[in-house]
């Protein structure tokens, strides 16, 4: 069965990181399932069509159209649909970014295909594709298969590995002439995230996060101070965000940001699976919690059982000494 990789974004010749990963995953799956890897180079990704061949596609179909200039999901779903129609029965891999979450269900609906979102793995088992996704906030994993011939998988970032590009790899590139109409949702304004001179949460080498256990907005000042000292950023649990102590852009977790810093410090956070889903890939995890039974200690590498009100000031003082600040 053919495997279609839906591609958007990226700048210039190389496909985006997400698309490179999906092409690598598709190539490996195609070796087991048979069939071609067909890349869909949509909108700005048109320029990366030959790059998609180098990263593993056998064939690339381009759809470029002014309606694809903005990340307009209705137009992208229509464009992806055209490519899928050409590919016949196929497994369709969609990047798990915000646009993907919007396009994948619309595409699946138009193809009458089964869709599994948030895939951590897609495997070929017993003559079918098997998708693995976290459920119950990460407390469990489910393996699902589609009953439909054509099937769609929305794949989480970094779930698949890209291949080394092969310059000069041969493959057909064809531009499809498609008439698309722009979607009905109009973009008015794009607000970039304000980081107030601090590192972006996703890029920070150290993340210091606070939860409901902090009891109010003031203690977050202390977290900011620590973040400042070590060049990090401040994160938070959903509970702290809901309490209004800190703005939602700081939320780490399944429905917040995914971070993987060198050091993650969780203060007054219980370690609910939904929080852990967004930080468990951090290299070193430190938890400060007064409850020795808190689930956060199951994922932490270093634990401090204690009241943050006692622990943090001494920690900051010692940190200052060490840093000579």
């Amino acid at each position: 069965m053919n495997i279609v990789v839906i591609g958007w974004g990226g700048d210039g010749h190389a496909p985006s990181a997400a698309v490179r990963e999906l092409l690598g995953g598709a190539r490996r799956l195609a070796q087991q399932s048979g069939g071609q890897v067909i890349g869909a180079a949509l909108g700005g990704a048109a320029k990366a069509a030959t790059g998609m061949i180098e990263y593993g596609a056998d064939r690339v179909l381009i759809v470029d159209h002014p309606a694809l200039a903005e990340l307009d999901a209705e137009a992208y779903a229509a464009a992806a649909h055209v490519v899928c129609d050409q590919a016949g029965d196929a497994l369709v891999l969609v990047p798990g970014d915000r646009l993907g979450w919007e396009v994948a269900p619309r595409l699946a609906h138009r193809l009458a295909a089964g869709l599994v979102t948030d895939c951590l793995a897609v495997d070929w088992e017993g003559g079918r594709f098997v998708m693995t996704k976290p459920v119950y906030g990460g407390k469990a994993m489910a393996k699902l298969a589609a009953r439909t011939a054509t099937q769609v998988a929305l794949v989480r970032a970094r779930a698949m590995e890209p291949l080394e590009p092969q310059t000069g790899r041969a493959g057909d590139v064809e531009a499809l002439n498609v008439n698309l109409s722009p979607g009905r949702v109009k973009l008015l304004e794009r607000k970039q995230e304000e980081t107030q001179g601090q590192v972006r949460l996703e890029d920070a080498p150290v993340v210091v996060s606070g939860g409901r256990g902090l009891g109010g907005p003031e203690p977050f000042r202390m977290l900011e101070e620590i973040a400042q000292l070590v060049g990090g950023a401040v994160g938070a649990s959903l509970a702290a965000v809901d309490a209004g102590w800190i703005s939602p852009q700081h939320q780490v977790g399944q429905t917040g940001k995914s971070v993987a810093p060198d050091l993650y410090i969780a203060v007054g956070i219980s370690g609910a699976s939904q929080h852990v889903a967004g930080m468990s890939n951090s290299k070193t995890i430190v938890a400060i919690n007064k409850d020795p039974e808190a689930p956060i200690f199951r994922v932490a590498h270093i634990g401090v059982v204690g009241d943050y009100k006692e622990v943090l000031p001494a920690f900051v003082a010692e940190l200052r000494k060490i840093k000579g600040a």
Binding site: H301, I302, V305, G306, D307, V311, F315, A317, L319, I322
Partner: peptide, 19 residues
Amino acid sequence: SECEFIEGEDGAEKGANLA
């Protein structure tokens, strides 16, 4: 789980030991 717990008489000592 592979958590190493920081020792200390009280919270403050643990905090310094953590650093």
